[in-house]
């Protein structure tokens, strides 16, 4: 058995005639925290959706535990997804259910566990993210950071072997960011899972990731351990890691000549 739990092999994906990924290769070894980084619109979240089988690649394949995801039927994909947990960018908590019910949701839907055991498991998961005391609250009563932590507890409710995080640090205050950052690493190690983080927050991601892929222009532009990437002299990686305004990724969106456009007579 290969040591890689997820493998992306020569993957291309596009829609509406535009190719978003052009032959991407990635591997995600068991037990590691691997980050996929890149600018907004570079197709990072789409990669998570391809791994989860929500969309199919145009060319190439994604393998999860050796099974080609897009070749599975609906039952096969659902079987694979039971090994996955996913934290969505804004939590995606069910707004009509309480915090407790949200975490209990996958247990109730996918297992035949008795209610007493579900209760204990939910409280344990909530305790792990520090929100056992908030189990009666509704999602609308939670702060952004708390909602993200509840969503994390729900994502690991069934002890998945793969945990995917879609922009886990986006829009959080520094304290919440630190909390989520620590939780991702500690839950990954405690569960013996593999974590895939999609993010553009360099500092936090580099702190917990074992390996990082940089995606730009539809390809893997760079890859390596965070320490090596910090020292990288590759122009794109340097610009991204240090947050330079201009570089290989231009400040301006492609446009016509500035002067000519200003002098143009409006047609409407």
């Amino acid at each position: 058995m290969t040591n890689n739990i997820v493998e992306i092999d020569n993957l291309s994906f596009g829609y509406k005639g535009r190719l978003l990924h052009k032959g991407i290769n990635m591997v995600f070894p068991r037990g590691k925290v691997v980050a996929i980084m890149g600018g907004s619109g570079s197709g990072k979240t789409t990669l998570l959706r391809l791994i989860g089988g929500q969309i199919a690649p145009t060319h190439g394949e994604v393998r999860v535990e050796g099974a080609v995801v897009h070749e599975q039927d609906r039952d096969g994909i659902f079987k694979l997804r039971r090994k996955m947990g996913m934290l969505f960018q804004h939590g995606a908590l069910f707004t009509d259910l309480s915090v407790f019910e949200n975490v209990a949701f996958p247990m109730r839907e996918l297992t035949d566990l008795p209610e007493a055991m579900i209760r204990d498991l939910v409280l344990m998961k909530l305790n792990a993210v520090g929100l056992r005391g908030a189990h009666v609250l509704m999602p609308t009563e939670l702060s952004g950071g708390m909602a993200r932590r509840v969503a994390l507890a729900r994502a690991v409710a069934l002890d998945p072997s793969i945990i995917m995080y879609d922009e886990p640090f986006a829009g959080l205050d520094p304290i919440s960011m630190g909390v989520i950052c620590g939780l991702i690493r500690s839950l990954n190690d405690a569960l013996g899972a593999t974590s895939i983080i999609v993010s553009h927050d360099v500092k936090e991601t580099f702190l917990i990731a074992d390996y990082v892929y940089f995606v730009a222009d539809g390809i893997v532009a760079a890859e390596g351990a965070p320490h090596d990437l910090m020292q990288s002299t590759l122009p794109f990686v340097h610009q991204f890691v240090h947050g330079d305004k201009d570089g290989p990724v231009p400040f301006h969106y492609p446009a016509d000549n500035y002067r000519a456009e200003l002098l143009q007579t409006p047609t409407t």
């Binding site: 929500q54 997804r81 996955m84 995606a92 069910f94 839907e109």
Partner: peptide, 22 residues
């Protein structure tokens, strides 16, 4: 519509729960 907008239906699908059934 709001469940779709806030990715609740996607979350359900990713949990291997069929949103049409649920």
């Amino acid at each position: 519509g709001l469940m779709k907008t806030t990715e609740q239906l996607s979350a359900m699908e990713m949990m291997a729960v069929n949103p049409i059934a649920r």
